[in-house]
């Protein structure tokens, strides 16, 4: 356990962007909140305000989530390649740490530790933003931001997202690590080209798109599996200043679908495939000592 803590700490030393990147976003958002123009329409109903406040906080989270997804993918693709490139892999291998432990620590970093850092940064910036906006706007939106229930919901949403994306995207993480452990160079290309080639070959020669659907369902199917997506009862429609309107759930609890997520066969097939790919990365790590 102690070794794992050191291994994850090591990743934070090597990849300083893990915490610098979210720190920069927090600072940028703070500057925007402090000096940007705040034009928030006063909305009629309290439900509408509460919905808007929730959406605002959620939108901040989405910024972090988006950057986190890109960074985390890149990290997983680089993590077993970088130390082979600079040949420091032999230094790490001169220590009493198994290859399995090294790979698992990196998997944990990419799939859990990095999301937690971003989640914390999102929370922190939401808190600061809410504070600044409520000071500046003097509107009922300001007070709408300070609802304990809203914050609780947001925490629950983030934690659910962290846990469920780690599980859902395990096969993706496994694939990226396998390529990272295997490829000598051009990891990005190697991670994209083979699946793309299979998809194109299937279309060209068989005229079908089984693999394409599989990949698409995995990459884009997360929201559909992990969340209730039908709007209806429990959703409020808020007219915006212009012509459109925005639909928001009254409560985040109506959104999460853990039972559906954990009972979906797709979830567990993904876990199985992901575990196999991670095992493959460990085997490659065991054998390959240099580029």
């Amino acid at each position: 356990m102690n070794t794992y803590i050191w291994l994850v700490r090591r990743e934070f030393w090597e990849y300083r962007a893990i915490w610098m990147c979210p720190a920069v976003i927090v600072c940028a958002l703070m500057l925007a909140a402090l000096f940007g123009r705040v034009e928030v329409a006063e909305l009629g109903s309290p439900e509408g305000n509460s919905g808007m406040a929730g959406m605002a906080l959620f939108a901040f989270g989405m910024i972090f989530f988006f950057v986190m997804t890109i960074y985390s993918s890149w990290y997983l693709l680089d993590c077993l390649n970088a130390d082979r490139k600079d040949r420091s892999v032999l230094f790490w291998k001169s220590l009493p740490i198994s290859d399995t432990a090294m790979v698992l620590a990196k998997l944990f970093t990419g799939l859990v530790a990095i999301p937690i850092v971003y989640f914390t940064a999102a929370d922190l910036s939401a808190l600061l933003m809410a504070f600044i906006i409520s000071l500046r706007s003097h509107s009922s939106l300001g007070s709408a931001l300070w609802q304990p229930d809203l914050w609780l919901q947001l925490q629950a949403l983030w934690l659910y997202v962290i846990a469920s994306i780690a599980i859902w995207y395990l096969p993706l993480a496994g694939w990226l690590m396998l390529i990272s452990a295997w490829a000598r160079r051009a990891v990005m290309l190697w991670s994209i080209m083979p699946p793309l080639a299979v998809v194109l070959a299937e279309r060209l020669f068989l005229g079908t798109h089984v693999v394409e659907d599989l990949l698409r369902n995995r990459l884009a199917g997360y929201l559909a599996v992990a969340f209730h997506h039908q709007q209806g009862a429990g959703w409020v429609r808020t007219p915006l200043g212009g012509a459109g309107s925005i639909a928001t759930p009254i409560s985040v609890w109506r959104l999460l679908d853990p039972i559906g997520f954990f009972s979906s066969p797709a979830t567990w097939i993904g876990v199985f495939v992901g575990a196999a790919l991670v095992c493959g990365a460990v085997q490659l790590r065991l054998r390959s000592t240099e580029l």
């Binding site: 040949r87 420091s88 230094f91 291998k93 001169s94 220590l95 009493p96 198994s98 290859d99």
Partner: peptide, 18 residues
Amino acid sequence: RAALMLEATFIADIAVLP
């Protein structure tokens, strides 16, 4: 290897520290 490295260690080449 991990168990072995408790009692043995090595320097493989120059500049292998990251």
